[in-house]
Amino acid sequence: MTLAEIDRAPNEVSSERARGRGGGGPAPKRIVVAYGFWIFILSDMVMFSALFAAYAVMLGNTAGGPTGAELFNIRSAFIETMCLLLSSYTCGLGALSAERRDPARFLIFAACTFALGAAFLFIEVTEFAGMVEKGAGPSRSGYLSAFFTLVGTHGIHVASGLIALVYLVAQVIAKGLQAAVLRRLLCWSLFWHALDIVWIGVFTLVYLWAT
């Protein structure tokens, strides 16, 4: 062992072996793609933060209309939360099965993810329809406008995630688990986990705060 090696901190990695820090050339495509998608997800979070801020500001502006405590059903919010959490779990297991080149397992987990995500969306749409029927639609008060914008934007994200999942499963069936498909799957699983993280904010700030 040379003096220079003894000098180095035990966990430090030399620059020629840590390619992400500029040594050894550019990072592989998979890393670059996923990092770019990570930046997109963070910008999506920034957009959601604006909607959360609008909701927090509008919290008291019910204009004589119904408040959240009168409208929300805490049990269906809990079921929605569990659906999304479990679908995030099966999505992770599906991504792992795809990494391990196990298409049969991937398809099973993808089907579970789709079913749980669709159940979430179904409960949410039913809830929205019930609120509109009671005369508590987005035009009733500033508070309800903010509520429908925030929760609805999350719902639209979930719906587009489900459409993208169908598209990806079709790709896996048609092309197999090749590198390009695996990259798309990785990005999709990042997106799905990120939606679950946004939902933590929604159920805490919207549903639990109100009751």
């Binding site: 072996r17 390619r19 998979r30 890393i31 996923a34 990570w38 991504a95 792992l96 990785l186």
Partner: peptide, 8 residues
């Protein structure tokens, strides 16, 4: 040590 992607 490549950069790690978020996710798997």
């Amino acid at each position: 040590f490549d950069d790690r992607t978020p996710g798997v």
